[in-house]
Computed example of a mutant assay.
Amino acid sequence: MQVESAYLQVMDWSDLPIFLAIARTGQLTKAAHALEIDATTAGRRLRRLERSLGERLFEQGPDGQSLTPAGERLLTQARAMERAAAAIGSRDAGGPVRGTIRASVSEGFGTWFVSRHLGELAEAHPGLAVDLVATSGFLNPTRRETDVAVLLARPRRGPLLTRKLADYGLRLYASRAYLAAHKPVVTPDQLREHRLIGYVPDIIYAPELRYLDEIPGAPEPQLRSSSINAQYRMTTAGAGIAVLPCFIGDADRKLARVIPDIRIRRSFWLVTHEETRHFPHVAAFAGWLAALAARHRTELEG
Rank of each mutant, 00 (worst) to 15 (best):
residue 244 L to V: 02
residue 63 D to R: 14
residue 50 E to Y: 09
residue 291 A to K: 05
residue 133 V to Q: 05
residue 9 Q to M: 12
residue 112 W to T: 00
residue 68 T to R: 04
residue 278 H to E: 15
residue 226 S to Y: 01
residue 174 A to F: 14
residue 103 A to P: 01
residue 23 A to F: 13
residue 8 L to T: 04
residue 267 S to N: 04
residue 19 F to D: 00
residue 209 L to Y: 14
residue 174 A to W: 12
residue 209 L to M: 12
residue 292 L to D: 05
residue 277 R to C: 13
residue 32 A to Y: 02
residue 263 R to G: 15
residue 92 D to G: 04
residue 170 L to E: 05
residue 131 D to Y: 05
residue 20 L to V: 06
residue 255 L to T: 03
residue 84 A to R: 11
residue 71 G to F: 08
residue 187 T to V: 13
residue 36 E to H: 10
residue 136 S to Y: 01
residue 214 E to V: 00
residue 115 S to Q: 10
residue 4 E to S: 01
residue 291 A to M: 04
residue 16 L to Y: 04
residue 205 Y to Q: 08
residue 4 E to A: 01
residue 150 V to Y: 01
residue 131 D to N: 10
residue 162 T to Q: 06
residue 161 L to G: 01
residue 187 T to N: 04
residue 181 A to S: 15
residue 40 T to L: 15
residue 154 R to A: 13
residue 166 A to M: 00
residue 58 F to W: 12
residue 29 T to K: 14
residue 194 H to A: 10
residue 85 A to E: 06
residue 143 R to Y: 09
residue 213 D to N: 10
residue 232 Y to F: 15
residue 297 R to F: 01
residue 142 T to A: 15
residue 80 A to L: 11
residue 171 R to N: 03
residue 213 D to W: 02
residue 294 A to L: 06
residue 33 H to C: 08
residue 238 G to N: 08
residue 184 P to C: 05
residue 266 R to Q: 13
residue 65 Q to P: 11
residue 173 Y to V: 03
residue 212 L to F: 07
residue 35 L to I: 10
residue 209 L to V: 04
residue 160 L to T: 03
residue 269 W to I: 01
residue 226 S to F: 02
residue 73 R to S: 13
residue 232 Y to M: 05
residue 118 L to G: 00
residue 36 E to T: 09
residue 60 Q to R: 14
residue 296 H to R: 09
residue 236 T to A: 08
residue 218 A to T: 11
residue 291 A to P: 01
residue 84 A to F: 13
